[in-house]
Simulated assay, not measured.
Amino acid sequence: MGLRAAALACLLAGPLGAEPIRIATWDPGLTRQGPGLLLRDIRARDPQVLAAAQVIVAARPDVILLTGIDWDADGRALAAFSALMADAGLDFPHRFSARPNSGLPTGLDLDGDGRLAEADDAQGWGQFTGQNGMAVLSRLPLGPVTDYSDRLWRDLPGNLMPAVGPEVAQVQRLSSTAHWDLPVMTARGPLRLLAWAATPPVFDGPEDRNGRRNHDEAAFWLHNLPHAPFALIGNVNLDPTDGEGRPEALQRLLDHATDPMPRGAWQPPQTGANATHAADPALDTGDFDEAGPGDLRVDYILPARALGIAGSGVLSPPPDNPLAEAVARASDHRLVWVDLVMPDPPPPLAGAALR
């Protein structure tokens, strides 16, 4: 058999073998009431911090987006938290974080209460710059990140921004936390993580400012989807079936992506607000107050349709599982993971010389 025939036989035999890549997203509750306090607690091996590290080690992701971790300019808190997991056998040599919009001052009285420099007057709610930001930890190399977080809300085509004065419109960013296009460099080429953490669609008045912003934070990606393998990932802060919010943009994103419907192994008794919910409780990722919204699905990984899905899940072990205590102690969110298979590289061009 000649070289050309042998190559053709290999192509026709089926896809090349590929190991799944486990990506995850989680709000680990690593936010504090002032700058520097998270680093203090990591160094002191605070029980909540240790619980968060234990959960991630148990999930063993190749890449994880953290949607609730305080940012500092030198990245010391993220490095210290990563070191805790390295000590437990899970090394993330590649990290990314950037200053989020949460807590970033605008210099304006956005809530109209006559006072400046409050949490409600920041680009995204926050008591200090960097509170409750985002970060990525990865076992795989990361490529150059495109950070869209400075885009103005008014510039999104078809935006639902409520009427505001020109002074506000000229400074108000769309992202309450951040929007990142972050390449993960796999053996089969880059996987683009389209990451964001949206404002909850509540805590406002009849103008529905937060509900409109939550919608538009998802709608942003409808105008910025890459022509490459991607996964939409993050804390969307929206349940498409239960709770408040405008799910239209999230539903339109599913025209371009697949919903693996990750499920948890255990759900609490469906009492209180949960008893009124219509969605499958196994899909819930937020363990919220029964007297309030109840448990909701708010954290998502939505891979592009070209990607294979080898498995998925929500890390919610039953109470008798040794991990259950750490899961409950760390956060009111649950870690979501999906095992992705990158598509085969394109075949060589017809007629190309084989050597």
Rank of each mutant, 00 (worst) to 15 (best):
residue 215 H to T: 11
residue 132 N to V: 10
residue 204 D to Y: 01
residue 139 R to C: 04
residue 319 P to K: 12
residue 10 C to M: 14
residue 194 L to N: 09
residue 300 Y to E: 02
residue 139 R to A: 12
residue 175 S to N: 07
residue 161 M to Q: 15
residue 295 D to C: 13
residue 151 R to M: 11
residue 289 D to A: 13
residue 313 G to C: 01
residue 318 P to W: 04
residue 17 G to N: 07
residue 82 S to R: 15
residue 132 N to W: 12
residue 224 N to F: 09
residue 159 N to A: 08
residue 6 A to Y: 13
residue 162 P to C: 03
residue 113 D to H: 13
residue 348 P to M: 09
residue 323 L to Y: 01
residue 105 P to D: 10
residue 125 W to Q: 14
residue 279 A to R: 13
residue 18 A to W: 07
residue 165 G to C: 11
residue 317 P to G: 05
residue 254 L to Y: 06
residue 45 R to H: 13
residue 354 L to S: 06
residue 28 P to W: 01
residue 238 L to P: 12
residue 28 P to I: 06
residue 258 T to N: 07
residue 245 G to A: 09
residue 310 A to D: 08
residue 85 M to K: 03
residue 290 E to C: 06
residue 162 P to M: 03
residue 346 P to A: 15
residue 81 F to L: 10
residue 116 L to F: 15
residue 274 N to T: 05
residue 74 D to R: 14
residue 299 D to E: 01
residue 302 L to H: 08
residue 59 A to C: 15
residue 194 L to A: 12
residue 8 L to I: 02
residue 338 V to W: 03
residue 93 P to A: 11
residue 68 G to F: 00
residue 5 A to V: 07
residue 271 T to Q: 14
residue 223 H to Y: 13
residue 280 D to S: 01
residue 108 L to C: 03
residue 296 L to Q: 12
residue 250 L to F: 15
residue 60 R to G: 06
residue 31 T to K: 15
residue 173 R to D: 00
residue 41 D to Y: 04
residue 48 Q to L: 08
residue 170 Q to N: 14
residue 247 P to D: 09
residue 314 V to P: 06
residue 11 L to P: 03
residue 202 V to W: 11
residue 210 N to Q: 12
residue 274 N to H: 10
residue 339 D to T: 04
residue 343 P to M: 08
residue 240 P to Q: 10
residue 20 P to I: 12
residue 157 P to C: 07
residue 217 E to I: 04
residue 146 T to E: 12
residue 244 E to G: 07
residue 181 D to T: 01
residue 202 V to K: 09
residue 270 Q to R: 15
residue 237 N to D: 10
residue 261 M to S: 06
residue 59 A to V: 14
residue 219 A to V: 08
residue 334 R to N: 01
residue 167 E to W: 07
residue 39 L to H: 09
residue 151 R to H: 14
residue 268 P to K: 11
residue 215 H to E: 03
residue 146 T to W: 01
residue 127 Q to K: 13
residue 101 N to A: 03
residue 327 V to H: 07
residue 86 A to R: 13
residue 53 A to M: 06
residue 106 T to Y: 08
residue 26 W to N: 02
residue 4 R to C: 04
residue 158 G to V: 04
residue 286 G to H: 13
residue 90 L to M: 02
residue 220 F to L: 12
residue 165 G to M: 05
residue 306 A to Q: 14
residue 69 I to M: 15
residue 137 L to M: 12
residue 59 A to L: 11
residue 132 N to I: 07
residue 187 A to E: 14
residue 319 P to Q: 10
residue 84 L to H: 04
residue 187 A to K: 09
residue 154 R to N: 02
residue 91 D to K: 01
residue 285 T to D: 02
residue 165 G to N: 13
residue 150 D to Q: 10
residue 281 P to A: 05
residue 258 T to V: 15
residue 306 A to I: 13
residue 30 L to Q: 02
residue 259 D to A: 13
residue 340 L to S: 06
residue 232 L to H: 02
residue 322 P to Y: 03
residue 309 I to W: 01
residue 203 F to C: 08
residue 87 D to H: 12
residue 330 A to S: 14
residue 257 A to C: 14
residue 261 M to R: 15
residue 326 A to M: 06
residue 191 L to E: 00
